[in-house]
Nucleic acid binder design. Sequence first.
DNA 1: CTGTATTATTAAAGCGCTTCGATAATTCCT
DNA 2: AGGAATTATCGAAGCGCTTTAATAATACAG
Lengths: 364, 364
Amino acid sequence: MPNSMRPAKPLERRPTIKDVARQAGLSLSTVSLVMNQSGYVSDETRIRVLDVVKELGYHPSRVARGLASKTSGNIGFILSDDHFSSAEPFYTRIFLGSEFEARNHNFYILLTTVSGKNGSVGTIPRFLLEGNVDGVLIAGKISVKLVEYIERLGLPLVLIDYELPGKRFSSVLIDNRKGAHLAVQHLAHLGHNRIAFIAGDIRHPSIAERLKAYQETLQELGLPLDERLVVTSEPDTRIENGNAAAITLFTQGGDPTAVFAANDAMAIGCMQYAKKRGLRIPEDLAIVGFDDIESATHVEPPLTTVRVFKEEMGTLAMQRMVSAVKSKTKTIVNTYVPVELIVRSSTQKHQPTIPQSSYEGGVR
Amino acid sequence: MPNSMRPAKPLERRPTIKDVARQAGLSLSTVSLVMNQSGYVSDETRIRVLDVVKELGYHPSRVARGLASKTSGNIGFILSDDHFSSAEPFYTRIFLGSEFEARNHNFYILLTTVSGKNGSVGTIPRFLLEGNVDGVLIAGKISVKLVEYIERLGLPLVLIDYELPGKRFSSVLIDNRKGAHLAVQHLAHLGHNRIAFIAGDIRHPSIAERLKAYQETLQELGLPLDERLVVTSEPDTRIENGNAAAITLFTQGGDPTAVFAANDAMAIGCMQYAKKRGLRIPEDLAIVGFDDIESATHVEPPLTTVRVFKEEMGTLAMQRMVSAVKSKTKTIVNTYVPVELIVRSSTQKHQPTIPQSSYEGGVR
DNA sequence: CTGTATTATTAAAGCGCTTCGATAATTCCT
DNA sequence: AGGAATTATCGAAGCGCTTTAATAATACAG
């Protein structure tokens, strides 16, 4: 009664490739070739081997094949800590997408966070020092020095929601321009002509893009570009900063009737401030966020926002990674993940959602 | 200019233990002993080795030491998929706590989810088949068969928010009884005497405990135990089920003035229903949740709830795991993580928070 | 001083696999 | 038919480390 689902009762030794070889009357090499589907093996022996494998419940030791083949079967996932440990589930969702996809390809993810602050290399993730990963995924903005370090290690690298000016790495990016465009357009169509923009961490490429697209869209629509309507001085994009940015905004005298926030957290912070100030949402102030995090649906009123497909970003990045690891060719692909505007009550009372399409940057 | 922070420019071969040995004029074994701080090594040679190690920027290959020492340096983390992929960030937070602690002890976590549904073993996590973990953490309710499988592998096992009747495993548990007690008591003190309880997934030990403590507390306070006030038929504990449970509750004629929900998600669902029904919260219906998830602060009104220290649970579990892996002795420790009642506007208008203390079950 | 413990170092085996080069068996050409 | 090319199998080396048992050096007894 062969049953690979169950180890022997008191649990003997795990079967090794040697056991399989002996049992099948073949050499180690042949068994190895079968397991790796490489080289020449006759159908007859292949079947014989696979039978024995099943019978014995054999599974190659990851660690042994790692040593022999100089691959670990792991992908490193680096996150800047300020992004991750913050309650903000944005990058967590991306991670989950990657994690799920990794499993489809028989990889595991080794997760680590690095301090996002300083420009130095900082502490180097142990999996890099120990040679314990076959490639690295980076989500969000991290030190250029660290990126360069990884580059020098010769490991495949895929960036998520981050780009390095002047560097050529595959990236999975949010279509920030379109998202910002949709948001501003939506507000304009509702009749707003004094639309503010609040953000933090303006040095993050994604945030910068949103600002730029905000400005461009205003121009495009023939609306005034009033700098009193823009607050980007906050160091971070969390709820508190949204609140703080709102305070600044309303002291600058721009007299906004609508706010486009760089992300949902800031939008929620802004919303809190608006309420405290006695403003009705959306009547006195319409608010649009970006990301579509869980909380966006639970705040009162529910937040109109630009939905980002976070899990999909993680998935796509991992797919790139897997093909990079397997192919060894260094093609660079920028993938732009679509966004869609989700209209909720923070901008108008009743609404449909408007899905958008995606496109890929392709090799360039 | 030795600098372990930086690999050679075009990147040569990683230095191996052999390189260190040669450079130091010692044998491999000696270097190994130094690296592992075991055996007898004179101070003089130890220093010499460490100097060379630093000079060469040597870091032992995780994969090689894995093969030689039959340890992987990884801890498996198993989650039932319905818990994890649900937007509910509860287990995610626990995972983060474990992840962080793992790093402190130079372990990595291999995360995987298993289908929580059937009672069979289901697909066995690959890291078990490949012998790629030194221990396993399980969060939430998973198949007993799988637990037994792991047990037979002889791997250290720590359960989080789960207990197995009749099995002896170390667990990290929520102090559900106290939490439920605090919640019900709070409502009673506010004058409520028709306090309902809604839950799903009643077969989960944590949920069952909350129900039991709910009942006991009512009795203790001399309040009626009306079964029309209890709805536990929902299969799951997500928002929709909270909504559904509320519907059932209000058709049962128990006429509740307050609801204690088994978790925040269900509380939020219940809240949604109450609003739709035109009930004012907390005036017409007071609501208390459990867990204190992020959304609890964002719903309108903010939800009174029992705070659970999720990261801490993950941390504690990992600490247990590390000591189990290192010591090889099979002490069983049940750790109860404290809870505290967080009073917000879903039960009364103005409030303080009431912190509670923790205790440990200890070896038994 | 000689014998026993203790401390220090090392050679060698081996962990379980991949992979290369060699060899053997077949098939394909012309 | 004879040799080249292709297909099939295997032996052996080796991946980078740990660990054991042996040996060497030193300290400690009596």
